[in-house]
Nucleic acid binder design. Structure first.
Lengths: 144, 144
DNA sequence: GCATTAAAGTGGGATATAATGGTTTGCAGT
DNA sequence: ACTGCAAACCATTATATCCCACTTTAATGC
């Protein structure tokens, strides 16, 4: 299961090591694409299939879905995992998520999020203070 | 059943001994994650399954659930219990809950809470005076 | 109540493997 | 054919996991 956070290096060749715990779940081929809140998303090919299916079934009649699909589908890269468990991050994605050397990988059950370390830290400190508020919101919605 | 409180040491290798009374209930594999009010939560894999299920079903469209998932799922750590009944607490969690050497483990029926000893003491003295007020609040809500 | 035994909690050392850095090989484009 | 880039391969270092040993506390029996 894809959970937890790991801090890894993005080396000069733009290679990023996936945490060993996730390699079975992710498989030897993954999809990386633009994510939300300035992160990247990584999916196993299987999970990606579901996402792409949902996004594409809505057709091209609606401007919003058209735009979002360009964002998500249009920037998706399918890439192999090498023998050491690494993938290459294309320049476009690297730029989008403002990635530098230190990367945070956050497991979100069915996908992985890739963050610039500083951005993640900022986010974490912010969210720690709001966690109880969020919890009660979700509680009201019946989610938790 | 997970009840009672125990004070244990967090050793230099960030290992925490689970009370022997709980080891059957928790099983040989547990999940530790960010909790509320600056504590950590420990679940058996079984209990964790229920929590993760609830959290992950809502997809990534809603910002609040996205954030809360980053908090809970993103910081969750699945780990084996070693032969001496110990688990490892990752740095991210240790930092979040401000854990030092002395740890309080509080059994909450279906989960365990992990507290910094001082924080727990403070909380205990604070809540003792408010318990009756809390009771009537819960009573109004029909909970007890 | 004291002694003996068992179990729980704590500490340290060794080994495997994960993460990273570097080198070579193959392919494509000029 | 040569050059440049990218991708696969190999090697090293660091870290985490496993295993064993000790100490302290609790329990049982005499």
């Amino acid at each position: 299961m894809l959970i937890g956070t790991y801090t890894h290096d993005l080396d000069p060749k733009k290679r990023l090591t996936l945490p060993s715990k996730w390699r079975n779940d992710l498989g030897k081929k993954v999809v990386v694409t633009n994510g939300l809140d300035n992160s990247l998303f990584i999916f196993s090919v299987n999970e990606w299939g579901k996402v792409a299916e949902k996004l594409s079934t809505s057709g091209f009649g609606n401007k919003d879905t058209r735009d979002f699909n360009r964002f998500m589908l249009g920037n998706a890269f399918e890439t192999d995992v090498d023998k050491s468990g690494r993938i290459v991050i294309p320049d476009t994605l690297k730029t989008f998520a403002k990635l530098s050397n230190k990367i945070v990988l956050a497991g979100m059950h069915s996908r992985v999020e890739v963050w610039n370390e500083d951005a993640w830290k900022q986010f974490t400190t912010k969210i720690s203070g709001e966690a109880d508020v969020l919890a009660s919101k979700l509680n009201e919605l019946g989610i938790i």
